[in-house]
Structures are given as C-alpha cells and as structure tokens.
Amino acid sequence: MSEELGFTLDGRRIPFQDGQTVMAAALAAGVYIPHLCFNPDFAPHGSCRVCLVKVNGRFQASCTTPAASGLTVQSETEELRNIRRGILQMLFVEGNHVCPACEKSGACQLQAVAYYVGMLNPHFSHFYPRRPVDASHAEAVIDFNRCILCELCVRASRDVDGKNIFAVQGRGIQAHLVVNTPSGKLGATHFSIHDKAAQVCPTGAILTKHQGYNVPIGQRLYDRKPINVVGDVAQLPESKGGRRHD
C-alpha cells in the first residue's frame, strides 16, 4: 500500500496525484487560491500572477507549479495578500472597469477576486485607454475595455472550438486582444454565442448582445457568498449562475 502524496498549504495537508499542480490539488481539496487566468479545462497559463504563492520560501504561480511531496506552501499571508491586491489594482487601472454600469457586476470573477483580496480602491492612476466596443457580431459584443489578457477566450477558441478567432497582439504594455480577421471585427468571424470561448471570460469583456441585468441584485452569483465559497463563474452550471450563454 503506497503512502498518499501530499504537501502542506498554510499548515494544512493537501493530498495530490501525480501531474497535479499546487492550484489543482488545492482546489480539489476544497482550498481556494485566488486566480483569474486559470481554468481547469485548459492548460495552465501562469500569466495573471494572482495565484502567486510562496513555495518553500520562493514566489511561484500555483497554477503552473507541480505539486510535490514535502512542499511547504503559503497562500493566505499578509505579504501575498498585499501582492495580489496590487496585481488586481493594476489590472483595474490598466483597463476601463466601470463596475457600476457593467452588466457582469455581481457575477464577475475579476470583481469577486478583488473583493476576496480586500481591494477597496484602485490606488494607482487610471490609464483610461481608448478601446472601442466591437458590437459587429449578431449575438455577442466584445468590450475590450474589460479584457485582462487572461487568454482564456484565445485558448478556448483555438483548443476547443477549433476556430482560432482571438489572439493577443503586441508586447508588454502594448499587448492587447484582437480578433483574427482582416477587419479585426468579430462580425466577420464564425464566432457563436454557444462557443466555449463565449463562456470562459472571467470579466465582462464578452457578453451576449441585446440583453443585460436580467438577474436582480441579491440573486447574482457573488451577491451573497464570496468567490472562495461559490467558485468560478465559468465552472458553474447555468442553474447556479454560470455559463449564461448555453
């Protein structure tokens, strides 16, 4: 009988199986590590850095760090909370995230994670980029102002839908989401609101057209319980507030 594999996370023993990451093992054990670009349906990306933890004293992205026996992982420390809060603040000021008018408010993973890490203000100066909304598609609208470059739509369209509709163009601070057509318009693609790519956005960047605010305040996904209890919007069935586009 082999001994169960495990590591410690904030003093708690987390079992894991070979090939699992620290993030995957923690979530499987019911322990929440905040994240945005991670989605268990896709290969880890490690780009948002919100899932930063300390592994044996070194900073690592928990979504890309393989679990290993004997690891000592810290997550819920003041130091990490401060770093995550700073990352969230930078994400908020880099785009135009106007929660008061956003249809996704209350069911937005970015907003919920910001609440979870205790972000109460943007702290940094807003960039206020000028990013036009693309509403050329009959069923969906893309608000680039809300894109956080998690590339989940890129991965979903390429790896699941087989359409390769989205891409990230530019480098560093110039990086931005584009639509893979000569016109750059979503309306010129075969995108469908039923695509996986339409269901994975952790913010309000990709939304169904001609509708909004259908769920009353008080009944929205994160109105009553925080994200560490509720889970990610993209992972929940429609009956629980997830996957609204099915």
Partner: peptide, 14 residues
Amino acid sequence: QGRPYWEVPVAVQR
C-alpha cells in the same frame, strides 16, 4: 457614445 444601448439606463442613472 459608443456604449451598448442596453447598458445605458444603468450607466446614466449615475
């Protein structure tokens, strides 16, 4: 200007 029409009632109440 340039915002989706269905968003406007919630935005302008601000």
